[in-house]
């Protein structure tokens, strides 16, 4: 059911939630987290849809924060949806006037007790996510640098602002690639000499993969531009010839290995809901992301020696 509350307060929202829960019969008690989605009217539909899908894996209370008309009188409108698209609860909060600058005062009383809080900015990331009032409520802050006009700048900015618990969808998108590359190098392979990551022009995921490979393997890894879609390939130059993983259709990758038959493997691009579900799976700081991001921003990265596990 959907409950609309105009010009309301958090305690009225809380009452309405309790009432709705009672009427629907004890549902939504097993919520594992609160997800704060910071978006605008244009982005809210897609964001809530993705959040609802992710909530089937991680039942949660979704607080969607939309700020409107900063010059208007302060007002809070709420739309509560329970027992519909997801096993949890969705609350769309529209904040008018100066209230928009104090969104945390609305979100904080509505957090589910005891369970973790995740804040997600599907579109524009704040300068310093951890210092943002809604970000400060959360132990996990999810941004998406690829949504920005100039992703490189945003990523560099996120590197400077990094606090444990930050993460970015550009890194999440890298997971299938990283997993395939790790599986590739599980096999005995000739000495690697250098690497190359090919992708579209503005693709922070490719930048992160290149930095990660450089950091881990202590190789010079170059980043070249292709026509996409997304990341189209990774090549390792070896003494025996090139080992290449290429993907030109955004769906299936081909592994080319000198002296061996080509092998195909599924490597499809994932939608927002899948990315979000991956982010919600682990809520502790992602140290590998932190190191990779720092490496991307540092001038003297990659290091000359491969990163050894006992060093870290």
């Amino acid at each position: 059911m959907t409950i609309d509350l105009t010009d309301t307060t958090t305690s009225a929202i809380d009452r309405a939630l309790t009432e709705a829960r009672r009427r629907l019969g004890g549902m939504a008690l097993g919520m594992v987290l609160t997800l704060i989605v910071v978006t605008d009217e244009e982005g809210q539909y897609d964001a809530i849809r993705a959040a609802n899908q992710a909530a089937t894996e991680h039942p949660c209370r979704i607080l969607t924060v939309i700020t409107r008309r900063p010059k208007a009188d302060s007002r809070l409108d709420a739309e509560i949806r329970v027992g519909e698209a997801s096993p949890g609860e969705t609350i769309v909060l529209r904040m008018y006037g100066t209230l928009g600058q104090h969104a945390d005062s609305v979100a904080a009383p509505l957090l589910v007790p005891d369970v973790p809080v995740v804040t997600w900015w599907p579109e524009s990331a704040p300068e310093v996510p951890a210092a943002n009032p809604l970000g400060a409520l959360a132990q996990r802050r999810v941004t998406d640098s690829a949504a920005a006009e100039v992703p490189d700048l945003v990523l560099a900015n996120l590197a400077r602002a990094y606090q444990p618990g930050d993460t970015d969808f550009a890194w999440t998108r890298a997971t299938p690639w990283r997993s395939l590359l790790a599986a590739t190098l599980d096999q005995a392979h000739p000495q690697l000499e250098s690497g190359e990551v090919q992708a579209e022009q503005d693709n922070p995921t490719a930048d992160l993969i290149a930095a990660w490979l450089g950091l881990r393997l202590a190789l010079p890894v170059t980043r070249t531009v292709s026509s996409g879609p997304g990341v189209t390939g990774v090549t390792f130059t070896t003494s025996d010839g090139d080992i290449t993983v290429s993907r030109h259709d955004g769906r299936t990758a081909t592994l080319t290995w000198p002296g061996r038959p080509d092998r195909m493997v599924a490597l499809h691009r994932r939608d927002t809901a899948e990315l979000l579900a991956e982010e919600l799976r682990r809520l502790d700081p992602d140290e590998v992301y932190a190191e990779t991001l720092a490496c991307l921003a540092a001038p003297d990265c990659p290091p000359a020696e491969p990163l050894r596990l006992d060093d870290v």
Partner: peptide
């Protein structure tokens, strides 16, 4: 050891070998 595998890297799943 495969330098791309790091016990702290919880995102990379276990994948079977060929």
């Amino acid at each position: 050891a495969n330098p791309l595998r790091d016990p702290r890297d919880r995102r990379i799943p276990r994948v079977a070998g060929p």
